[in-house]
Design a protein around this nucleic acid. Structure first.
Length: 191
DNA sequence: CCCTGATTCGC
DNA sequence: GCGAATCAGG
């Protein structure tokens, strides 16, 4: 795969949206996250500032040369000593007009079956597991973290399970148990 | 261990 | 220019 205009555009778009390099790589296909990061740097949009305004140069730790220095010239091993790290002024507000937090009312949440149609065993298991939940935020979810939501998205008391997912499933074992009810199991549930 | 971006350097 | 390997960190 090569960096066609289309792919670069998509890269810019996704990166601008704050997608991670690995996510972008997967969406693009045919490239690794390294390739994405490399391209991002070459495009000069490594810093997610936006319109390339303030050139707030990052400190960029010295980080001594890791590998052999094939220096044909008698280059002194000692680095030119970076100008000491800057005191970090830190002011200049970007451009976030203090947006009121948007709380999506009808988000496409996973099925939350009514308690009365879940097997008691599975329900008990879930309650048990929720104590061990990692309580991840939306941004911390990955392909292998359980995406079962707990609590009310409109409150602070909301999080995702975050436990290791069942292979191929979006949820951990316990939540898979309540999310995917076999028809046979939910039929004629006496209560 | 899972993940993140940053950097280097042979190609 | 490209991206794997590596580094540094959460």
């Amino acid at each position: 795969m090569s960096w066609t205009e289309e792919r670069v555009d998509l890269l810019k778009k996704l990166w601008g949206e704050g997608q991670s390099a690995s996510q972008i790589a997967k969406e693009l296909g045919g490239v690794t996250r390294n390739a994405v990061i490399g391209k991002v740097h070459r495009l000069g949009l490594s810093n997610r500032q936006s319109g390339g305004a303030a050139a707030a140069a990052k400190p960029a730790e010295p980080k001594a040369a890791p590998k052999a220095e094939a220096a044909p010239k008698p280059a002194p091993k000692t680095e030119p000593a970076r100008p000491a790290a800057q005191p970090a002024p830190a002011d200049a507000k970007p451009a976030m007009p203090a947006r009121r937090q948007i709380i999506p009312a009808g988000q496409p949440l996973p099925p939350q079956p009514s308690a009365n149609e879940i097997s008691p065993e599975a329900l008990a298991k879930v309650n048990e597991v929720e104590k061990k939940a990692k309580k991840l935020g939306l941004m911390e979810l990955t392909e292998r973290t359980c995406k079962w939501p707990v609590g009310d998205p409109a409150t602070e008391d909301f999080w995702f399970c975050g436990l290791p997912v069942q292979v191929g499933k979006p949820y951990c074992e316990a939540h898979v148990g309540v999310a995917f009810q076999p028809m046979s199991a939910r039929r004629d549930r006496r209560r």
